[in-house]
Simulated scan of single mutants.
Amino acid sequence: MKILTAILILILALYTVTRKKPLEAIFGRTILSMVAVLLYAISAAPDVALAEALLGVVLSTFVYITLFRRMGKIRIGVVPVHSLFEKLGNTYRGLEYELVSTYARQNGYEIEITEYADQKELISSFVEGQVDMICGAVTRKMCPDHTDCYEILQTKFAILPDRRTVDLLTFKEYILKQSIRETVVFSQEIDEYVISIEKKTDLSLKFKDFYEAAKNSGKLELLRKKYVGD
């Protein structure tokens, strides 16, 4: 019985350390502690079994779940824009939204979305640490130096009658809302819409692997065609 229990502990330990999703690892750790309680009990060590039950099963599981609820969330700052991160009622759609929501779902994260009126306010919030990731109408040249930028789509710029320069998807929203009626000049400058994350963070390292897999598998290109076209 002791040998079988010890083997089960080894299997559970291997299961726990190989989990990619935090909740699965917490589940494995809790079951491992419960089996350890059984091992101590059949080994005539009731005091150790009681300590493991209280500390290993109850207390540590509570601490892990509490920390996970705080850390298992991605705070996304966004300037909503057509086709990339577009709000529809109480939900969102778009190339970037589908990409980040798929990443979050695969890694067991929740997402918390905060909308900003313009890029200046968004970047300021990101620099102050109020959000973990920024996207929407965000181009590479806007991103702070300490960030990793993941290219989503190229864009040119429209020069509005009031001399403001806006990216093409923002310009498309202006057209749809019929807020521009005058002739508009288009710049030859080219930039990229990006998803931006602070460098050398766990989130950035994990998202990089996800992004490269989506890019190499052709999924990113399929999303571009789905939301933007050829």
Rank of each mutant, 00 (worst) to 15 (best):
T5R: 06
T5F: 11
L12S: 11
L12A: 14
A13G: 14
L14M: 12
L23P: 00
A25S: 15
A25I: 04
I26D: 01
T30V: 12
S33D: 07
Y40I: 00
A41R: 04
A41V: 06
P46C: 04
D47Y: 13
A49H: 01
L50S: 10
A53T: 03
A53F: 13
F68T: 00
G77I: 08
V78E: 12
V81W: 01
R93Q: 07
Y97A: 03
N107W: 05
I113W: 01
T114N: 14
I123S: 04
V131Y: 04
I134Y: 07
V138W: 00
T139L: 06
C143D: 07
D145P: 13
H146A: 13
C149H: 09
I152M: 14
Q154L: 04
K156Q: 14
V166R: 09
L169W: 07
K172N: 04
K172M: 08
I175V: 11
L176G: 00
S179W: 09
E182R: 13
V184A: 05
E189I: 13
E192W: 12
S196G: 07
K200E: 12
L203I: 14
K206G: 12
K208D: 12
K208G: 03
E212V: 13
N216Q: 06
R224K: 15
G229N: 08
G229V: 10
